[in-house]
Design a protein around this nucleic acid. Structure first.
Lengths: 193, 193
DNA sequence: CACTTAAGATACACTGTGTGTCATAAATAA
DNA sequence: TTATTTATGACACACAGTGTATCTTAAGTG
């Protein structure tokens, strides 16, 4: 499921390996929050992580690769939130439940959505929505792919707007807006009453 | 209206200045199409433009600044297309007319929407939609700002999806999809029959 | 405890940025 | 046209960051 292109040939179970990677990821998160992804150098990351410069390249191909591994990790985590066993809390059925998670992780979510990996996040979201039976919305006139794309990109766009707006809008209001602008219209197109 | 931060103190009317800037902009466009914005160096640009390296910095602060000046130029041009005197061809009234323009300029539009300036394009689009009396959609429950944001981001997102999809979908179909996914729902929210 | 191997330290070549300086060519203004 | 202004080109330079190579050391593994 994870597509991080970590350099092969290392014992993933070695404590030193796990520690180094954990330190590098945490350093990236901290630095991205404080300085922004674009303004960070690999030397900054290794310095913050207290790790040798060369060591970085023993694990990742470059800055983008490290970010990618982080994104994969988060996407997997978010999937767990959006598709719980009960399925009652899925974002198209109950936006509020999802928003609670997003709000508590606002920093990291925005970091992710504002980074160069944003496109990949959208792609993964579309892919996720298209998974077998997951797509609630189906229209006779509009291709499934477009339905999924519009749903995912609208949700992400509204989420960014909300999280960047300094929380002027409450979680409850936002859920209502999402329902009116996205969910209901798409339900209507799907013939769901 | 234009916010390009061109370095001051130069005679804008001097033919040499105009020629240099035109060459640099065209070089950026060409290189972005062939190699992608991220992979271009300033040396590449000046080489392509047949302009001295140092000369670049006499006009722009850096790569982003040059892109910005290009974006400003394009946004102004697109505004003319989207808001003609007749106003009958506005995208919320007749998506088809706008799509014709977008299709013929697909390369450049995609370049722009995939560049680092994409966020600013969205901001400008929202700002444009919010201009006095321009916003057709108004809801009693949803803030104007959010209506404009959702409209703009949805249009841009659908546009990207369309232009990146190798034209599998005809202009006519796309106009229909836009109408069903965005225009009609927002009209309904506005109480427009 | 012996062995393996990841990590640290350091040096290096390379690419790209941004600035300084000066002679020259080209545009402007008279 | 001619004289003057000034944008440009051609270097040269300091600097920052990348990615690799090599050797030693320290830590984790079995």
């Amino acid at each position: 499921m994870s597509t991080s292109s970590i350099i092969l040939g290392m014992n993933e179970n070695d404590l030193r390996v796990q520690r180094t990677r954990a330190l590098l990821r945490q350093a990236l998160i901290d630095l991205v929050k404080s300085d922004g992804y674009e303004n960070i150098s690999i030397r900054d990351i290794t310095k913050k992580a207290q790790v040798g410069y060369k060591t970085f390249y023993r694990h990742y191909e470059g800055k983008d690769d490290l970010l990618q591994s982080l994104v994969d990790e988060m996407v997997d985590e978010i999937k767990q939130v959006l598709a719980p066993p009960s399925d009652i809390e899925a974002p198209d059925k109950n936006p509020l439940a999802s928003l609670t998670y997003m709000e508590t992780n606002a920093d990291l979510i925005l970091t992710l959505l504002n980074s160069t990996a944003a496109d990949q996040v959208l792609d993964k979201a579309v892919e996720f929505a298209l998974e077998e039976g997951r797509l609630t919305f189906k229209s006779d006139f509009i291709p499934d792919e477009l339905m999924a794309h519009h749903f995912a990109s609208s949700m992400i766009s509204l989420l960014r707007w909300w999280l960047e707006g300094d929380k002027q809008v409450s979680k409850l209001e936002m859920a209502l807006y999402i329902d009116q602008l996205v969910i209901r219209p798409m339900k209507a197109l799907s013939g769901i009453t």
